[in-house]
Design a protein around this nucleic acid. Structure first.
Lengths: 201, 201, 201, 201
DNA sequence: CAATAATCGAGACGGTACGTCTTGTCTTGGC
DNA sequence: GCCAAGACAAGACGTACCGTCTCGATTATTG
């Protein structure tokens, strides 16, 4: 019974030459290199094609533009990351989560991420892709921490979830895009402390 | 006895034809219109020149590129704005300040500002100019509110000023550039409330 | 046994999209029109691109500048021309050849040719191309007339070929570029007469 | 009797600051240097102004454009030149005159002259100025030689003067602008010999 | 095994903005 | 009124990148 593996939703092997996985990986690898070396703007589709040994047509066939490739390249170089700390203390969980985020922001990939955020201001498709694939997962994580903290009675039960997440992540993003203050562990701790205890006496 | 005074502050009219204030204003006005109509990216230096009745050469003589013109145009259309509320209550001052900021972010100019922040991710000069001329003044304002609140005993005296400002402004910037949640008065109030009281019980 | 022949003359279709002959012709046609309508200097690469329905990039890909396009356009609009008269009389051959040249100089194309000669004074590449493709063929023609005349005993056998050709063509070029005297059949005849018989009694 | 020297036709010293002879000379000197160093096309009015210590406005006040300045600069650096040899032999006179011309063509100034001829193909004013001030005087010289030769019975009395002059000078101009053959004494002698004796046996 | 069909690399193409350059004019204050 | 300094409008230049296209070659499924 030649089921020739499908099982899932995809249309059980169409006719014609199948997409080359090798090309896909070569494009992502080349994009990864280039976006770190020269930045998203200076990186050209042409150069991705040359370095990956593929062609512009192939790239444009599978991605709408270089920024979409960059999103995927950035994702594939992060992979398994940012898992839920769940230490039993919301404050500690926040600290670990925010330190992780800020560490990412401060890394080479963080620079690329900032450029993607920059580009997203001009292109709604990139904005959507960013929100879904890079921002959303982080927020989900903090949402879980939040819920546990409320359940344990550590945090206020009347919290506006979204606003609360923004209180923790907002300052980091602000520093990333405005660059007015450093992004380091001390900053992470200070922000978490303030967010937990509040500004008032 | 009219001493042929020189050596003062301004260079007392240098030789040559002076810069045309009329051209400068026409360029800023045309840029203002265009950046709101079509966005920073689609706006071209050529069109600024045409609409302002000046020339590309003149624009490039005084600004490095269209984004620098946009920064100045955005500033000159805001001008006297965002003055210190000083209501006697830090919470109230924060609410007013953040509502003001968020109102700006939600306006037409806010979209342009977001695009400038986006462009700043690629150009350090624009980043610097933004920080100095658009971000800095707002932060200065909140710093004053903060100091008064501490002096009055409303706010904790051990506050890290910068982190505290980020706690108030960060979430707004986060929403502006990531667009995952609305920017309205309710959001401003929720954020200020959280920031003041903290997440903890 | 169909040897997969390569190594022959033409490269047997290289990879990639082949050059569009249609674009090439459209560019030459547009250039032809423009150079006659407005002259070489006023004609712009942009206008060639617009009128031909191509793009500046395509033009610059195949020609170094508009003057090189003009050389080719001028050639392609002349093509089969100036064939050897060979009447049996050197004097008659010279007359026909010089009348032909002078007729060309006096035509619309002659004005463009003069402008190309003018431009060649500033650009060695154009100078070389002109010499090879527009001047050389004419000289070859007169050289043949000359040789036949010597063989028939009409002309002196000790002639310096190059100087002799210059004696016939030089005055015409002189009048073309200096414009001090008319270019007509009478001029052609007078010059040939003088060149054949000499100034001396 | 305050005649304050005038005597001639000029309007006996007008009011206001008179034209600065120093500036005029400085402009001509700077133009001379530049046109030889970089060529007419690359030379800019701006650079003439800088090097001469004058200003563009001054240059444009007294000359229509840089080519007109170049004509005057070229003239002023030649000055007393090309006087009539008058050896008693037309052939010898022609030889000396043509050698002189060809020597000029082969000099640094000859290159500039060729560029002026080139520019004249686009600008009738320059063409006129060239004809009057640089070409005409040479032709006048040969015309005198010609007349003496006819009077002495050396040359044919039915000569078309203009065509005859072209026969002597044409080949040199042809070589100057087309560059297909050398410009040296041997060339001068060969051309004069051919022109005098003719191509026929 | 041939026909069909989709992918691939190469590279030409139309479109368009960029930032630079030169031209010739103008507007200052000083001489 | 002339001059040096230098700003200005106009507009062509040649380069660069984008996203699309047209080739011939390749690689799978289908009949």
């Amino acid at each position: 019974m030649a089921v020739s593996r499908s099982g899932q939703g995809q249309p059980r092997s169409r006719p014609g030459r199948p997409r080359s996985e090798q090309s896909r990986l070569a494009v992502l690898r080349a994009t990864s290199e280039l976006m770190h070396e020269v930045g998203l703007r200076v990186m050209t589709t042409e150069e991705i094609a040359n370095r990956s040994g593929t062609s512009k047509a192939t790239i444009y066939k599978w991605w709408p533009n270089k920024y979409a490739v960059a999103v995927e390249a950035l994702l594939s170089e992060m992979l398994t990351e940012s898992d839920d700390p769940d230490t039993g203390s919301a404050r500690e969980d926040f600290r670990i989560a925010l330190r992780g985020l800020i560490h990412f922001y401060g890394s080479r990939s963080g620079r690329v991420f900032a450029q993607l955020v920059g580009e997203a201001q001009f292109d709604p498709l990139i904005a959507a892709e960013l929100r879904e694939r890079l921002v959303g997962s982080r927020r989900q994580l903090v949402r879980a921490i939040l819920d546990r903290g409320v359940a344990r009675g550590e945090l206020r039960r009347d919290l506006d979830s979204e606003a609360a997440i923004d209180l923790v992540f907002g300052p980091a993003m602000y520093r990333l895009v405005a660059g007015h203050a450093p992004l380091d562990d001390a900053a992470a701790d200070a922000i978490v402390d303030l967010a937990i205890r509040g500004l008032a006496c």
